[in-house]
């Protein structure tokens, strides 16, 4: 069977590429870590892959604003190949800094040729970086990465994770057009103040998807919960504890196998 291939985009300051690569391989993909310079040199490189990951880290130090400089690079050098990648029916996942890049490059929520106007991600209300675990409640049925209705538990680690919409209308559009992928909730699925909503994000929004459901960005780190012993209190829980994070990657690999590989060979 042809292999599902994933590209993990590196840049100065990206720092979760190794664990993301391991996660994808655990989920059944062949994953490469590729520096963004290689992609800029050879724009056709992206064609070899089915899943593109914008991983976490501090691309270019998060100078000016989180993800901004890398987003600027994507807009000015990679807009076409990335758009083609999405149009080809392939999958894009932005995690933490990657989500910030996708939003600041206008790839999410998407639809208006890479112009970021409606939504941004900015400083946590607490004014500081936070590493803590959160519950996420899916808000969409169309995103290929997400099992509808299944609440998951994963960590966040960021200083700029608060999603803000430019206007009430823009927020309304996000919701009515089904762009909200995840919300921060408590263990029972209820929204609430800090720390349930760890950064003060508007309407507890933790992640966005585009209109196709094949592009997902989220602040939390699913790649940090792929083994039982990564749960913050696994030592209290049974041996049958199932890590939530890996599922997102398994679903992506499965989607590619069923939709892209099958169609390629057809």
């Amino acid at each position: 069977m042809e292999q599902v291939r994933a590209i993990i985009l590196r840049a100065a300051g990206i720092n979760t590429d190794l664990e993301t690569q391991y996660t994808l391989e655990l989920a059944g993909a062949k994953a490469d870590r590729v520096h963004i310079n290689r992609l800029i040199e050879d724009k056709g490189l992206l064609d070899q892959y089915h899943i593109a990951i914008f991983p976490g880290g501090f691309s270019y130090g998060d100078d000016v604003a989180a993800g901004k400089i890398m987003a600027n690079q994507v807009v000015h050098h990679l807009a076409e190949p990335v758009q083609k990648f999405i149009d080809d029916g392939k999958l894009v996942l932005g995690i933490c800094n990657g989500f910030q890049v996708l939003v600041k490059a206008g790839i999410l929520p998407g639809g208006t040729n890479f112009r970021q106007e409606d939504v941004t991600i900015t400083n946590n209300d607490s004014g500081k970086y936070e590493d803590r675990w959160v519950y996420l409640q899916p808000q969409t049925d169309r995103c290929v990465f997400i099992e509808p209705g299944k609440r998951i538990y994963v960590p966040i680690a960021h200083g700029e994770g608060k999603l803000v919409a430019k206007s009430p209308e823009a927020l309304e559009r996000l919701k009515s057009e089904g762009h909200v992928a995840f919300k921060y909730v408590d263990a029972n699925g209820q929204e609430g103040p800090f720390p349930i909503n760890p950064n003060g994000s508007t309407e507890s929004i933790a992640g966005l998807t585009d209109k196709t459901g094949r592009v997902l960005g989220l602040m939390p780190h699913p790649e940090r919960y792929i083994r039982r012993t990564q749960h913050p209190h696994w030592s209290r829980l049974g041996k049958d504890l199932r890590p939530d994070g890996i599922e997102m990657f398994r679903r992506a690999v499965k989607y590619v196998r069923e939709n892209l590989l099958a169609s390629c060979s057809a």
């Binding site: 664990e19 500081k128 675990w133 680690a157 780190h221 940090r224 012993t229 990564q230 209290r236």
Partner: peptide
């Protein structure tokens, strides 16, 4: 202090600096 540090990056944490039922 502890929460301002990323203590989970690289995905290798097994016993974290904060533990217990409420982490």
């Amino acid at each position: 202090v502890i929460r301002q540090y990323d203590h989970e990056v690289q995905g290798g944490s097994v016993v974290k600096p904060l533990v217990g039922v409420a982490n």
